[in-house]
Each structure stands twice: as C-alpha cells, then as structure tokens.
Design a protein around this nucleic acid. Structure first.
Lengths: 346, 346
DNA sequence: TTTTAGCACTCCCTGTAAACGAGTGCCAAA
DNA sequence: TTTGGCACTCGTTTACAGGGAGTGCTAAAA
C-alpha cells in the first residue's frame, strides 16, 4: 500500500483529529466541511476518509457514525502533522510563579511540579522522583540512635535527602562514627551513589583481611546503608481529571485505570523509559504495552541535574489529548525543574 | 416525640440497616420478612417502618420504593445497636503479617497501614502521619551543605526522621556546628518538639544580649529549623474502592469526592478530630461538616507512641458501610501500629 | 389492643416500536 | 477529479404500555 499520504489527505486527517480532540465525538464529513477550513464537498471528504480508514489511520465505531482516529492516526499526527509552538511568556510566568514558595525542598518542588502539570494540562500529572542510585553523593552522616541502631542520612548533590536505618552488629562509639563519617565524606564526594556502592563493594572484597579496623567498619556500615535503594517514588496529582473524560465514563474501565495508578509500578516503568531520552516523548495507547492503559497516552520528558538525567515527569490522559498544548507544558516544566535543581544547591 | 424505641422497632431498624448495607437497595417490608429473622407479617413491619420514618430514622426515596436509613438511623445503629466483635486471631495474623517486611521505616509502615486498611475493609484507607510538634525530640544533626545552607535532621523518639534546609546569615565552621549540635542534643532530649520550640523562644527572649555567642547561634539555628512544621502528611490508599460503590455511580458526585481527597486538607481536619480521643470514632455524613463529604462516613482511631497520641488512621467510605466488620479492623490496626512504634526503636 | 389480610394506588423500570437524524457508499453527472 | 443525489444503515430519542415492588389504609382476625 502506498503509505505516503497526499497533502490533501494529511490536511483532512489533521482536521479530523483536531476536531475529535476538541469534541470527543466521531467526526463526519459534513461537520468537517462546516467547521474546519476544508474547501471540499462532503462527498470528496468522504472518499478521502474511506481511504484513510483503509490505511488504518481512522476507524468507524459503526456504519453510520463518523470516524475516529486510530492509534496509528494519533502517532502520525504527533510525528509529522503536529507543529509545536513555544509557550507564550505569560504562560511561562504563570507556571514559574508556582515554584516561588518552594525554594529549597526538593520533595515539595516535585510535588508542585506534578500539581502544576495537572492543573495546566487538565489531565493527570506524573513526576518520578530521582532514583537514589543516579544521584551524586554529597554528604553522609550517621546518627546513633541506640546501641544497635544507626540512622544514615545521605545528601545528594541535587539536595535530595534520604535516610535509612541500619542495624549494626557491634557497638560503635560516637568517635568511631565520626571518623567513619569523615572518611566516607572525603573519599566519596562527587561520585554517584551507584559508583559509591560499587567502590565500597570492591574495596571490601580486595582488602578482605583489612588491617584497618575502622575502615572495615566504615565499609560495612555504608554497604548496609546503601544496600537497597529506594524504589523510585512517583507523585501523581489530579487523578480526578480522568473522571471528566467522556471516554472513561464506563466505571469498569475507569476503575481499572485508577487501580493501575494506585499500584504505581506500571507508571514507574513507563516513566523510566523516558529517562535516557532527550526532549519530549509521547507514548500512545498500546505502545505502553500494558492492556490496562491501552486507552491512555503519556507525554513525558526527563529532567536532569548537573550530571545527567535524574527523573522523568509528564502527563497521562486519554489518547484523545490536545498534544499541541500539552507537549510544550511538559517540555517547559522539565526544563524549569532542571534549572531549579541546578541553581538551588551550590 | 417519644424518642425511645421499643425493642421490636430497634430489631426492625437494625434488620433494615443491615439489609441495606448488604444490598444497597431500598428495603421493603416483604424483603425483610423473607430474608431476615423477622417473625411478623409485612403489614406489621410496615407500621413500624412508617413510625421509624416519622421519627427520622428512615427515609423513602419515593412512594413505592423501600426505606433507606437516614444519618440519624446510622448514628443510632452505630451508637446502640451495633455489637462489635473482636477480630478472630486468624484475621489478626493476616493483618500483622503485612508489617513483617517493614521492620524499621516508619514511613513505609504507615503506608502499609493505609494499604492494609484499604484492602481488608474494601474501602479507602487513611493514615495521618505524626505531626512533628507532637513527637518527642531525640536527636538533631546539622549538615553543612554550602556556606549559607545547612541541613537540619531531626530524629524523634518514635523513629520519624524529618529534615529541613535552613539558610543562615553567617558562616559557621563545622566545629561550631558540632558544638551547637552537642549542646542541643544534651539539653533538649526527651522534650516534645513543641516544648523544644517554646524553650528556644523563651531562652532567646530572656537572654537577649546573650554573652555566649555560640549559644545565641544555636538558638537561632534551631529556631529557624523548627519554625514551620511539616503539615501533617496524609496517606490515602485505595481510592479506587469508591468506584465500586453504587451510591457514587454518578460521575459528578464521584469527582467531587476524589477532588476532596486530592486536596487533602479536609481529610487532615477530619482525622485531626480523632487525635485526642480514645478508641474508635465514627463520623457519619454531614457530621463531617463538609458538604463534599455529606455522603461519606469515616471510621477513625488514634495511634500513639510512648507519650501520647501521634496520629490518626482510619477508613472512609459511603455512609452505607459494614461498620461491624470495619470498626474492629481500624481498632486493631491502630493498636498494632502503636505497638510497633513502641517496640521498634528503643 | 395488636396483628394480619386485602386492596387500591403510586411510581419506577423495562421492553417495544416508531420516528429521527447523522453519516456512509456508490453512481452518475458536471 | 469533484460534486450532488439517493438509498441504506444504525444508533438515539421518544412515547407508551405492562409488570413489579412497595405503600397506606381499612377492616377482619387473634
């Protein structure tokens, strides 16, 4: 089949998709010639529509309804038809002002990001918090809570604070802890947590019969402290926007989606996919590879700190989303968060 | 009006409420005599029902439907008709086993509590994390991040770790910080955060021209660190259970409730109310005093640490909830959490 | 005096049928 | 190649009748 669409076909496809995005109703040939700037008769449009249906870009729910875009249609629209404009500076300001009160706390900032994404897009906002392992070590502190319990507090370059309780076998004096702290802080600064962990492991293996008692304990302690990373936490805001979408009026289907959100692991996986990519990613329907989300699309972008990607954020909604307005919002927010993380903590 | 119900009236009211809880359908006189253990004819039941309606315990949606309980009906049921049985030990074990993997982390434990409440009740689980101010100071640590930025880490008696970034005016050497830390840890241990804060404030006022430079800075720093407490965080799990309730099939109404959940402040207020009380509290419908939740009921209980109440947890659902099975679950969970918090960190 | 049976009445729900409308596909004419 | 016309399809709406569940009232039975 000739998969190259004529200019005219593309124009009509675009008009159909945009009309459908706006109205959520199957769009017919007549409606198209009326509302959109199509200068053809309904009959001509019908011919093109039939052709587009044959090619798989459109589908008809039943004989006498209009056409709705298929996933392939949306994909083509996003890939080649969509012209993405920048946000105007007024909107940028409106978004940016949301972060003014959250000067220093990373967790608050990410929550605000999710909330802002949701309220500016009118869909559901998603933010995946940085994985511990991908962040840069800045500082570690041990606080002795009882004879067998030590609290380890890491601070990462980007200002994320993470703590973990560690059980220890032998009693350590505050003096021991202080020395261990100093040693680790001097040797590990600037490495990623992943690198720190690797280094601890190799050093422990190499110097099995480590002569320096203190060092051995330092490694044992930090190894225990780093052992299981926090699974990337995900911040979801604005689930209620899903309830506004006519395509999810069916409670069964709605419930499946909300349950998927509650479970989080699927969303973590989807957001993870965008972590290594540049710019905005769009995942449409079954491209998610989860049947629960086969009617949902995600628009995601990675945000990054000084040294590479930290996490991903985005918006999830029905396939029928106004991509042209949401993509810039996601893009701008990701850049804004990256910028704020860079400047805040130095 | 004679507000004392005869034994028979009470029995019938109870049967109606339980039938309605089970079926979500208005219950008629015939259905009652069929299914429940009522040995009267439908006509007699009807007389009693009419009386109960006059007294405000029942209502009829329309002429030829059965009766449904009013809030007053539920309240009477909960206050005087309900016999609460203990959980059997099998159920207790099932609940308890959920916490085995979460030995040490308080945050994880609370999240698990919310999840368990939800899955065992089939409604939505709520847990309000301890307010910082009501917890007991155990340890404070300052970590210098840059010349103007200090990270303050508190540990509370119950193992809650809270951190806050503080901007400082003058540069402090690590040695200064260490001294300040030591001073605060020695003087403040065992006080509640609220008391610590009060103490810092009075000392700062009293010794305005504080001769000891170090002390002054210690107070300034801890004052800044304690200044605005974390607003009680609330953990909501199982919102999707709301989608199963026939009374919320209306999307409008559903959306209003989900939005209320997202906003959280209302739930915080409601959970706060149960903080000072002993045992299980039930808030029914408009008793919440929020119109958004006029069709919802909460079952809450406070959990506590060594020294008094820390937070509240519970379940929220429609007015039509199986109180007799959920109250023991909430009660047991609150006690379990209290116990775990007590034993874990000593 | 209390309980029950009978009966007329109300109101919702369901199913059917008809009318309607939006849209399609195809064919022939422009 | 485009357009107008036309028959056809199919979902949606409206109207209406019938059935069912439940009520309130009254009079008879216990």
């Amino acid at each position: 089949m000739a998969d190259t669409l004529t200019d005219r076909s593309q124009k009509i496809l675009e008009a159909i998709i945009e009309e459908y995005i706006a109205t959520a109703q199957p769009v017919g040939s007549k409606a198209l010639t009326r509302n959109q700037g199509i200068k053809l008769s309904p009959a001509s449009v019908r011919n093109v529509m039939a052709e587009l249906e044959d090619l798989g870009y459109l589908a008809s729910p039943h004989t006498s309804a209009g056409r709705i875009p298929t996933e392939k249609g949306y994909r083509f629209y996003v890939d080649t038809l969509l012209r993405i404009s920048d946000l105007d500076s007024q909107q940028k300001d409106q978004i940016e002002v949301q972060y003014q009160h959250h000067g220093l706390h990373m967790a608050d900032m990410l929550r605000e990001a999710s909330r802002t994404l949701s309220s500016f897009s009118n869909y559901t906002g998603l933010v995946m918090a940085p994985r511990l392992k991908s962040t840069i070590f800045r500082h570690i502190e041990f606080v002795k809570l009882s004879s067998r319990l030590v609290l380890a507090v890491f601070v990462t370059q980007s200002g994320l604070v993470q703590n973990k309780l560690v059980e220890i076998d032998e009693d350590l004096t505050p003096r021991d802890l202080e020395q261990i702290t100093n040693y680790l802080n001097q040797t590990m600064i600037g490495l990623s947590i992943q690198e720190v962990r690797a280094r601890v492991v190799t050093e422990m293996a190499h110097e099995k019969a480590l002569y320096d008692h203190l060092l051995r304990r330092a490694f044992a302690l930090s190894s225990a402290a780093l052992i299981d990373e926090i699974s990337g936490d995900i911040i979801i805001e604005g689930t209620s926007h899903f309830l506004e979408q006519p395509e999810f009026a069916d409670l069964k289907c709605m419930k499946r989606i909300v349950q998927t959100f509650e479970q989080k692991s699927i969303l973590v996986d989807l957001l993870d996919r965008g972590l290594e990519s540049q710019g905005v990613q769009v995942i449409i329907g079954s491209e998610t590879e989860y049947s629960e989300l086969s009617d949902c699309s995600l628009i995601t972008a990675a945000y990054s700190g000084k040294r590479g990607a930290l996490g991903t954020l985005g918006v999830i909604g029905p396939n029928r989303m106004p991509y042209s307005t949401i993509i810039p919002i996601v893009d701008y927010t990701a850049n804004l968060i990256s910028r704020l993380l860079d400047t805040d903590n130095d």
